[in-house]
């Protein structure tokens, strides 16, 4: 998608050009010899990973091994951290997102993010989901309402909130808030959705619903999810990358990682024997 390269006109309505048009490769994101540093401390070492399109890719590994760092490289959220820098290449839709002329706003419209703790805006449910469209300058009310309904249906929240769209989102339960945040991300139709432990703050029932949701979403979105829950990774992902001390030690089909890991550390980690 060359759209990222040029500063996109704000008025343009998004349609899923990225997913349908780009046939250049089967990978939505790929990195080449990526190193990342927080000031002097290196957090990622020589990362070469290729994230498939229209699939769920899971990042697993012990705390502090760099999963979030890599995830936040993909939409350049680390730009806000003083002293953060990268070396190497990160391609999203075959475009180097760390190149000079990249517009991070356009990148982030294409690569959405869902955070660990639900973080709805202290606004109405309606305004939360409409936010991404409105900041793109879209004012067509019927289009916005259509997108809101569609996104909320996708996250199975529509039935629960359709009669209280004007109510503050803070009145929703934690699980509902997280689904709202996912809907907010989906409303602008990104091609990638990054999720950093999206269910770690939720109860098992809410977690289950979000997992079901991910199953549906993989038909239209490329998803990268960080999780500490091994069962979750095994259940929902197509590919799994195991991180250790800033390196990707093993990356393969989820089935293979969980049934027949090549690496001893991977095996120890997924079986729960890890120091």
């Amino acid at each position: 998608m060359t759209e990222i390269l040029s500063k996109k006109k704000k008025k343009k309505k998004k349609n899923k050009t990225s997913v349908e048009k780009s046939v250049k490769s089967n990978f939505i994101i790929s990195t080449e010899s990526l190193n990342a540093y927080y000031s002097e401390t290196q957090a990622l070492f020589d990362i070469n990973i290729q994230i498939p399109k229209l699939a769920v890719t899971a990042f697993i590994g012990p705390s502090g091994c760099g999963k979030s760092t890599l995830l936040r490289v993909f939409n350049r959220m680390n730009d806000y951290i003083d002293g953060f820098k990268t070396e190497g290449k990160v391609l999203v839709d075959d475009t180097d997102i760390y190149a000079k002329n990249i517009d991070t706003e356009t990148l982030r419209k294409n690569v959405g993010m869902v955070f660990q703790k639900p973080n709805p805006f202290p606004k109405s449910i309606y305004e939360n989901v409409a936010f991404g469209l409105k900041i793109q300058g879209i004012n067509d009310k019927s289009f916005i309402e259509h997108r809101i309904e569609e996104s909320l249906k996708q996250v199975a929240l529509w039935g629960e909130v359709k009669d209280k769209m004007k109510k503050n989102a803070y009145g929703l339960s934690g699980g509902q808030q997280q689904r709202l945040c996912i809907a907010r991300t989906l409303a602008v139709e990104p091609s990638v959705v990054l999720m950093d432990e999206p269910t770690s703050a939720l109860d098992p029932i809410s977690t289950g619903r979000i997992e079901e949701l991910l199953f549906e979403l993989r038909n239209n979105y490329s998803i990268v999810i960080v999780t500490h829950n091994m069962q979750q990774a095994a259940r929902i992902s197509d590919k799994t990358a195991f991180f250790w001390l800033g390196k990707i030690v093993e990356y393969n089909d989820t089935k293979k990682i969980f049934t027949n890991p090549k690496n001893k550390q991977t095996e120890n980690y997924i079986s729960g024997h890890f120091g």
């Binding site: 990148l107 973080n119 805006f121």
Partner: peptide, 22 residues
């Protein structure tokens, strides 16, 4: 909270939009 600013930037909002809308 920083999480609200992150949510806004994560949606592709500019700094100006984040300040005045969030």
């Amino acid at each position: 909270p920083k999480s609200l600013r992150e949510a806004s930037y994560g949606m592709g909002a500019t700094k100006f939009q984040t300040v005045f809308k969030v």
